[in-house]
């Protein structure tokens, strides 16, 4: 991976939460929420991160932003804003960045939250919310600040005349737009979108997704897009990473992943996507059992107790996360030999 257009490169990222036990609060075990995640995000693309609840998607995102402290790993970010004269960018390791560097990096990486209700301070006006990042970094004052805020509010499709209203006067979709405007305020390179539409109505979801795509084009944004809905991921992503139990099991270009999945978990996930065709015979691959506890993950391949292709090696040996060529990463012993079903699309 020596490509020049890589914006963010995450290597061996781990986040273990200690579990305390007994009166002396000794550490009894660790919940391995994120366990050795490797990924990179290219400039201008949308990398989708998909997986079921509790697989560590959100924790991965939060750790990349250092909103929670990662246990181990490197998070290299190529910042244009931090570049010294004569250089195109400055490479910074977010995982070990000092507080002032971290504050400067906030201008490069922003986040959009899942819940449009609790992510906006109810005591602040829309103007104050959207303009807060500008104030924090001292980027604009007075009239200039007001104008900048107004233009951000228009950019996300809201009426700038409503700038003095409070969040509770807006609908869920509008509130999510306010959150997007706040994320745009610092003119970031990368936006972490943490399930930005899963709390919205289906009709509003499409609007917000389209807005995100328009903004990407307009401002040259790069997205790390977390979701659990495969159809949304397929719609918005250039590349997709599938997570299971704190690990990335497969990462590939959207087309390649959906048409030629290499990991049994990806196959099972895709078979669960509903098809809008009443004549379609459901042959969903039902995964047996529950997601194992990240407190006590299975031996070998984490997926083996639920995998229908399990062989002995799966129980004993953890598969290597490898590139099958053309940037199709997978961690399965039999990725080359399995013939897995692609995403069904109904009759057509």
């Amino acid at each position: 991976m020596t490509m020049d257009n890589i914006l963010l490169e995450v290597r061996n990222l781990k986040k273990y939460f200690p579990v305390h036990k007994g009166i002396f609060k000794r550490i009894a075990a660790h919940v391995k929420a994120v366990d050795d995640v490797d990924l990179y995000v290219k400039k201008g693309e949308t990398l989708g991160l998909v997986g079921e609840s509790g697989c560590g998607k959100t924790t991965t995102g939060r750790a990349i932003l250092r909103l929670i402290e990662p246990t181990a790993g490197t998070i290299r970010f190529r910042s244009k804003k931090l570049a010294t004269a004569g250089k195109a960018f400055e490479e910074v390791d977010i995982a070990t960045a000092s507080p002032p560097i971290l504050k400067a990096l906030r201008r490069d990486i922003q986040i959009i939250f899942q819940d449009p209700y609790s992510s906006l301070d109810p005591r602040m006006t829309v103007e104050a919310i959207v303009g807060e990042p500008l104030r924090v970094h001292g980027l604009a004052k007075g009239v200039e600040w007001k104008e900048k805020v107004q233009s951000l509010i228009s950019a996300v499709g809201l009426n700038p005349e409503q700038a003095n209203r409070y969040p509770h006067q807006f609908s869920g979709g509008q509130r999510q737009r306010i959150g997007i405007a706040r994320a745009l305020a610092l003119d970031p390179e990368l936006i972490l979108a943490d399930e930005p539409v899963s709390a919205l109505d289906v009709s509003i979801q499409a609007q917000v997704l389209n807005l995100l795509q328009d903004l990407q084009e307009q401002f040259g944004l790069t997205y790390l897009f977390i979701a659990h809905d495969l159809s949304i991921i397929k719609y918005i992503s250039d590349r997709v990473a599938v997570m299971y139990l704190g690990k990335i099991v497969e990462l590939a270009e959207t087309e390649a992943l959906f048409l030629d999945p290499k990991h049994p978990y990806t196959e099972a996930l895709m078979s669960a996507v509903p098809v809008p065709d009443p004549d379609y015979r459901l042959d969903q691959i039902l995964l047996e059992g529950d997601v194992p506890s990240p407190l006590n993950p299975p031996s070998g391949c984490y997926f083996h107790p639920r995998c229908r292709y399990t062989k002995d090696i799966c129980r004993n040996e953890s598969p290597r996360y490898r590139d099958l060529g053309s940037e199709h990463f997978v961690s399965c012993h039999f990725a080359d030999s399995l013939n897995l079903k692609p995403l069904r699309t109904g009759k057509s």
Binding site: L65, L67, L102, I111, S119, R123, E132, P133, G179, R182
Partner: peptide, 26 residues
């Protein structure tokens, strides 16, 4: 516990700023 506190932290706001601008008014 509210997400807007985390949101403010993500913009680079300091702890003192978060307490003064978000926690205290609430």
């Amino acid at each position: 516990e509210q997400v807007f506190i985390e949101a403010s932290r993500a913009t680079g706001q300091s702890s003192v700023g978060i307490i003064g601008k978000h926690v205290l008014p609430n």
